[in-house]
Each structure stands twice: as C-alpha cells, then as structure tokens.
Amino acid sequence: MRRVIVQESDFDAAALQRALYEACAGRAGAIATFTGYVRDHAPDQATQTLYLEHYPGMCERELQEIGDAAMQRWDIGGYVILHRVGELPRHAQIVFVAAASAHRGEAFRACEYIMDALKTRAPFWKRERLTSGEQFWVQARDADFDKTRRWDDAPAAMPPADQEQEQ
C-alpha cells in the first residue's frame, strides 16, 4: 500500500494503521506511526488556529515521491501519508504518517524520514493565529533542513547521527 491523502476533514489514525496492516497481508511485523497536532506557538502564546494552504496536485506528487523514496531506501511494505489543510484549531490532528515493515528499525527510520522530508519538501504554507489576534506565516526552521540533509548524507540503511542502531 502506498497511500497519500490531503484533506480538510479529521482522520482516524487507528483506522489508517489498520488499513496499512491489512494491506501488507501478514508481512508487517511492525508499523511505526506519527501523529502531529496543532500546538501552541510558544509557552506564553496560545495558538487559536493554524491555517494550511497547499499546492493541489503538486503537493500529492511530492508526498508520493517522499514515500516512494522511503520504500527504496528501507525494506518497508507500504506507507500512509495524510496531511490536513484548511483552518485547524489548537490541538487538532494535522498529520499522520505510518510505515510498515517486517522489522521495527526499518519502520521507525522510514516513518521519521518521511516526516522530516515532508516538513522541508512538501508545498504547504502555514498561517498561525494566536489568541492575542496576532497572525503570521510560519517560516521553515534551519533545524528541519538540517535533519533532512542528515538523511540525504547518511548511507541508505543508517539512521541520522542522533539515533542509535537497533540492537
């Protein structure tokens, strides 16, 4: 299963994980998942909403390329990438990523790679509105680009430098 979804509506993470597991027809010994939520801008600045825009068509293609790159790099049997767009309130689910593999290490690394690449390559734009009324476009962080570069520089089977090898 190679599934990419961009939608406004909320999602059921358990149902997405179950569908990936079933699509792997018993070959998945592990499914690693990540669910991201709209969080407060800073400890002293509450977020009211996060508005996400995307480039339809291009966004889905880029997410598919990221997922396919993970499949080529690690021995995963499939993935799900779901990202929401539109106006989301604080604490809403925003993104879901899952990778299925026979072994946990492959699934963990693929899931993390997909999420890191998504943050720097997928054409999404985020506008945050705080409870104070302040609004601003969220800028990409250098740390996100650094994480993606570590993956690009690492041998295919190896995780970035800040992770330990699976024992």
Rank of each mutant, 00 (worst) to 15 (best):
G57T: 04
Q93K: 14
F34M: 04
E106C: 06
V6P: 00
I76E: 02
M158G: 10
D75Q: 13
G78A: 00
Y113R: 05
L50T: 02
A13P: 06
A140I: 15
D146T: 12
R109I: 10
R149N: 14
P159T: 10
A69M: 09
E60P: 12
R3D: 08
M115G: 03
Q93L: 15
G77C: 09
W74M: 06
L16P: 07
P89Y: 01
R109V: 14
L130S: 01
I76C: 02
F34Q: 01
G77D: 11
I5F: 06
V97C: 03
A28M: 04
A14M: 09
P160M: 04
Q64H: 14
R3A: 12
Y51W: 11
E53N: 10
Q165K: 15
A98F: 08
A46Q: 15
L50F: 06
A156D: 14
Q167W: 15
Y37P: 07
D142F: 00
A99K: 04
V95S: 00
A19E: 13
A99M: 07
E106T: 07
R127P: 08
P159K: 12
R27C: 03
G57H: 05
R109P: 04
R121M: 11
F34K: 04
A154W: 01
H83Y: 06
P155V: 09
V38H: 02
Q7D: 02
D12K: 06
D153Y: 04
D75T: 13
V4Y: 02
P43T: 08
M115C: 08
Y55A: 12
F96L: 07
V80K: 02
A117P: 02
F96M: 05
I81A: 06
Q45F: 13
M115Q: 10
I94V: 15
P43G: 07
R90P: 11
A102T: 06
A156N: 09
F96K: 05
G78F: 03
I5A: 03
A13E: 14
M58T: 11
G29I: 03
L50S: 02
I66Q: 05
G29P: 06
M58G: 12
T47S: 04
A98H: 01
E62A: 09
S9H: 14
L130D: 00
P56Y: 10
A99R: 02
F124E: 11
A13I: 01
A117H: 09
V4A: 01
Y113Q: 05
A15T: 03
Y79D: 00
A154K: 00
I31R: 05
V80I: 07
P56K: 06
Y113I: 02
A13M: 05
P56C: 02
R104K: 13
M71A: 15
L130E: 00
A156F: 03
G77K: 06
L88K: 08
A42S: 13
V80P: 13
D40R: 04
Q139S: 13
A42D: 06
G77V: 06
R90C: 12
R27V: 00
W137P: 10
A92L: 12
A30F: 03
Y113M: 11
Y51M: 15
R121W: 04
I94A: 11
G67I: 13
A13N: 07
C59Y: 08
T120C: 06
L63N: 07
P160N: 05
R84S: 00
L88H: 01
W125C: 10
G36A: 07
A28H: 03
P89V: 02
E134R: 14
A107M: 11
C24A: 05
A92M: 07
A15E: 05
G133D: 05
D142V: 06
